[in-house]
Computed example of a mutant assay.
Amino acid sequence: MPECQNCGSFVTPAYARVFTPDGMENPRVCPNCEDMVRDGAQVRAARSPRNH
């Protein structure tokens, strides 16, 4: 099963298919990483808090 590379949380195969680049199986961040964003090949803290 796919899991977040940042926090290790389980993600659905559908989420991984949509939010993971071709050739990768696991997304770099997931919905559980509230204040983290992808930045190129890295993951970094968001510049502003994410409000849901």
Score class of each variant (00 low, 15 high):
Asp35Met: 09
Met36Val: 08
Asp35Thr: 08
Ser9Cys: 14
Gln5Phe: 03
Asn32Glu: 12
Ala16Tyr: 02
Arg50Gln: 13
Val11Lys: 04
Ala45Thr: 11
Arg38Phe: 01
Ser9Gln: 10
Pro31Tyr: 10
Thr12Gly: 06
Val18Cys: 02
His52Val: 15
Met36His: 08
Cys4Pro: 03
Phe19Tyr: 12
Gln5Pro: 03
Arg47Gln: 14
Cys30Thr: 10
Arg47Leu: 07
Ala41Glu: 15
His52Cys: 15
Asp22Met: 10
His52Lys: 13
Gly8Thr: 08
Arg50Tyr: 11
Glu3Thr: 12
Tyr15Pro: 04
Cys4Trp: 06
Arg17Ser: 01
Val18Asp: 03
Pro13Phe: 01
Phe19Gln: 02
Arg28His: 04
Pro13Leu: 01
Cys30Pro: 08
Pro27Arg: 00
Ala16Trp: 01
Phe19Ala: 01
Val37Ile: 13
Gly23Phe: 11
Pro21Val: 00
Phe19Asn: 04
Pro31Leu: 07
Asp22Phe: 15
Ala14Pro: 03
Gly8Trp: 07
Gly8Tyr: 10
Ala46Val: 08
Thr20Phe: 00
Tyr15Gln: 07
Pro21Arg: 00
Met24Val: 05
Ala16Glu: 01
Pro13Asn: 06
Asn6Glu: 12
Gly8Cys: 14
Arg50Cys: 15
Cys7Pro: 03
Ala16Pro: 03
Pro2Arg: 02
Met24Cys: 09
Gly23Glu: 13
Ala14Phe: 06
Pro31Cys: 05
Ser9Asn: 15
Arg17Val: 01
Ser48His: 13
Gly8Phe: 09
Val37Ser: 05
Pro31Asp: 14
Cys4Glu: 09
Thr20Asp: 00
Ala16Gly: 01
Arg38Thr: 08
Cys7Asp: 03
Arg44Lys: 13
Val11Gln: 07
Pro27Glu: 01
Pro27Val: 00
Val37Pro: 04
Asn51Gly: 15
Cys33Ser: 07
Ala16His: 02
Phe10Gln: 09
Met1Tyr: 05
Asn26Leu: 03
Arg47Glu: 13
Arg50Ala: 15
Asn6Trp: 08
Met1Phe: 06
Ala14Asn: 06
Met1Asp: 13
Met36Cys: 09
Ser48Thr: 13
Ala14Glu: 06
His52Asp: 14
Ala45Gln: 12
Gly8Leu: 12
Asp22Thr: 06
Phe19Trp: 08
Arg44Cys: 10
Val18Pro: 00
Gln42Cys: 14
Pro31Met: 06
Cys4Phe: 04
Gly8His: 07
Asp22Gly: 05
Val11His: 02
Gln42Asp: 15
Arg38Tyr: 00
Asp35Gln: 11
Asn26Pro: 05
Asn32Pro: 05
Cys7Arg: 15
Ser9Thr: 12
Asn32Val: 02
Thr20Asn: 00
Ser48Val: 14
Cys30Met: 08
Val11Glu: 09
Cys33Lys: 04
Asn32Gln: 11
Gly40Gln: 13
Thr20Gln: 00
Arg44Ile: 15
Cys30Glu: 11
Asp39Lys: 06
Asp39Leu: 11
Val18Ser: 05
Asn26Tyr: 02
Met36Gly: 05
Arg38Lys: 07
Asn51Ser: 15
Ala45Ile: 08
Glu34Phe: 04
Pro27Ile: 00
Ala41Gln: 13
Tyr15Thr: 04
Ala41His: 14
Val43Leu: 10
